[in-house]
Amino acid sequence: MYVSNHLSLVEDQRQHVDSIAERTAQFLAAGGTVAQLPSPPRKPLPPPRSTKIDPETILKRRKPPIPRAERKALRKLAEAL
């Protein structure tokens, strides 16, 4: 049995659990065997990143904006001219 915050949902599914347990017991009594196999990987790894760097891409990057203090200083210099 599993733990759930929704006990009514667990109780609603009880008939299915009992049915599966009964059919499993019948299968094993008839000589059936259960094999435990390794589980498949959960998520495939993404493809490796390319090591190629395009020089054009580096040139297209935006420059960081001028800080507010520098903009004020530039305005004062422009007004003084």
Score class of each variant (00 low, 15 high):
R75Q: 08
S39E: 04
A69F: 04
I53S: 03
K60G: 09
P67F: 02
E79Q: 14
G32I: 12
I58R: 12
Q15N: 07
R23P: 00
F27K: 12
L77C: 02
A73V: 09
A29K: 14
L37G: 00
L59C: 06
S19K: 11
T24V: 11
R23K: 14
K52G: 01
A69Y: 01
P65S: 04
R23I: 09
P40R: 12
P46V: 13
Q13C: 09
T51V: 09
K76P: 05
G31S: 04
L28Y: 13
P41C: 03
R75I: 12
P55K: 06
I66V: 13
T33C: 12
S4K: 15
P67Q: 03
V10T: 15
I58Q: 10
P44C: 12
P40W: 02
P38E: 07
H6V: 02
V17D: 02
L9K: 15
S4Q: 03
P67R: 03
D12W: 11
P41F: 01
A29S: 12
L37H: 02
T51R: 07
L81S: 04
R71K: 10
A29H: 05
G32K: 01
A25S: 09
A29G: 07
G31T: 12
R14N: 00
P48H: 05
G31E: 10
E11M: 12
S19G: 11
R14E: 05
V34S: 06
V17G: 01
R68K: 13
P44M: 06
K52Y: 15
A35C: 03
S39A: 14
P38C: 04
Q26G: 09
K60L: 12
V34M: 11
L37E: 02
E70T: 02
Q26R: 15
Q13F: 05
V17M: 00
S19T: 11
E22L: 07
K76I: 14
I53E: 13
K52P: 00
